Amino acid sequence: MTALISHTSFDSLDAFASSVFWGAVLGFVEDPGDPNNPGDEECMIFSIDGAQRLLFIEVPDTKQVKNRVHLDLKPAAGTRDLELERLLELGSTMVADRRRPDGSGWIVLADPEGNEFCILRSDAERASQ
């Protein structure tokens, strides 16, 4: 017997704003039959195929320390550097640059609420080296 992940939950000060940010980052959408609205205490977004779900739940506490769990993302198209530009424009901030001269490594970013996540090289970038 095994367990299946239903969804990944994030504590958030503003569930709606977090769902909008991460929806733009990942290309996830809300359920048209149960849309997310400003002020909602819980907001869920779905991958286009519905296989992955993220739930943002409002809590009164701000983030205190480094995440114990985080998302590692890779560009669906383009390069890590182009994805970095896009994510900074969406409101991410750079936490640490762990890129190496040989092209390996990653970049640590934070979402608008301070939750860290990483950007890795794309499949095409890894295959070319």
Rank of each mutant, 00 (worst) to 15 (best):
residue 56 F to I: 10
residue 60 P to S: 09
residue 68 R to K: 05
residue 70 H to E: 15
residue 92 S to E: 15
residue 54 L to C: 06
residue 63 K to M: 12
residue 58 E to G: 02
residue 72 D to I: 02
residue 78 G to N: 08
residue 54 L to D: 04
residue 83 E to R: 07
residue 49 D to M: 00
residue 55 L to V: 05
residue 61 D to R: 12
residue 84 L to S: 14
residue 98 R to W: 10
residue 94 M to P: 11
residue 86 R to D: 05
residue 57 I to E: 06
residue 76 A to G: 12
residue 100 R to Q: 11
residue 67 N to I: 00
residue 86 R to Y: 05
residue 80 R to P: 06
residue 72 D to M: 02
residue 59 V to C: 14
residue 84 L to P: 15
residue 91 G to L: 04
residue 51 A to L: 00
residue 82 L to C: 12
residue 93 T to Q: 08
residue 80 R to M: 07
residue 45 I to H: 03
residue 58 E to C: 07
residue 91 G to S: 05
residue 93 T to P: 02
residue 45 I to D: 02
residue 100 R to C: 05
residue 84 L to F: 07
residue 79 T to S: 13
residue 86 R to M: 02
residue 63 K to G: 15
residue 57 I to V: 11
residue 60 P to G: 15
residue 85 E to Y: 05
residue 79 T to Q: 03
residue 72 D to H: 04
residue 68 R to L: 08
residue 52 Q to T: 10
residue 47 S to C: 03
residue 83 E to H: 11
residue 75 P to Q: 09
residue 62 T to G: 08
residue 70 H to N: 15
residue 86 R to C: 02
residue 79 T to G: 07
residue 53 R to L: 00
residue 59 V to I: 15
residue 57 I to H: 10
residue 68 R to Y: 03
residue 56 F to E: 10
residue 87 L to Y: 01
residue 48 I to L: 08
residue 67 N to T: 00
residue 64 Q to T: 11
residue 98 R to G: 00
residue 70 H to D: 14
residue 76 A to L: 10
residue 62 T to L: 14
residue 49 D to Y: 00
residue 71 L to K: 02
residue 94 M to L: 10
residue 66 K to L: 03
residue 86 R to Q: 08
residue 88 L to P: 08
residue 78 G to F: 05
residue 63 K to A: 15
residue 96 A to L: 13
residue 76 A to C: 06
residue 84 L to C: 12
residue 98 R to C: 01
residue 70 H to C: 09
residue 91 G to K: 02
residue 87 L to H: 03
residue 69 V to H: 04
residue 89 E to L: 06
residue 82 L to W: 06
residue 79 T to L: 01
residue 48 I to E: 11
residue 52 Q to G: 08
residue 90 L to N: 07
residue 87 L to A: 01
residue 94 M to G: 07
residue 100 R to M: 06
residue 70 H to Y: 14
residue 63 K to H: 09
residue 55 L to D: 04
residue 82 L to M: 11
residue 50 G to K: 00
residue 92 S to K: 10
residue 69 V to F: 10
residue 95 V to R: 13
residue 98 R to M: 06
residue 94 M to C: 10
residue 100 R to D: 07
residue 58 E to I: 03
residue 85 E to D: 14
residue 101 P to E: 10
residue 75 P to F: 09
residue 67 N to C: 07
residue 76 A to Y: 14
residue 57 I to M: 14
residue 76 A to V: 07
residue 89 E to Y: 01
residue 46 F to I: 00
residue 63 K to C: 13
residue 93 T to R: 12
residue 100 R to S: 08
residue 85 E to N: 13
residue 58 E to T: 12
residue 54 L to W: 05
residue 75 P to Y: 06
residue 90 L to M: 04
residue 71 L to T: 02
residue 50 G to F: 03
residue 65 V to I: 09
residue 70 H to P: 15
residue 87 L to S: 01
residue 46 F to H: 12
residue 53 R to T: 02
residue 65 V to G: 12
residue 92 S to F: 09
residue 66 K to I: 01
residue 62 T to D: 13
residue 73 L to K: 00
residue 95 V to S: 14
residue 69 V to R: 01
residue 80 R to K: 15
residue 97 D to M: 10
residue 59 V to F: 13
residue 88 L to T: 06
residue 101 P to T: 06
residue 83 E to Y: 11
residue 52 Q to V: 11
residue 72 D to N: 13
residue 56 F to N: 12
residue 54 L to A: 05
residue 56 F to S: 12
residue 81 D to C: 04
residue 59 V to K: 08
residue 77 A to H: 13
residue 61 D to S: 15
residue 73 L to D: 00
residue 59 V to R: 14
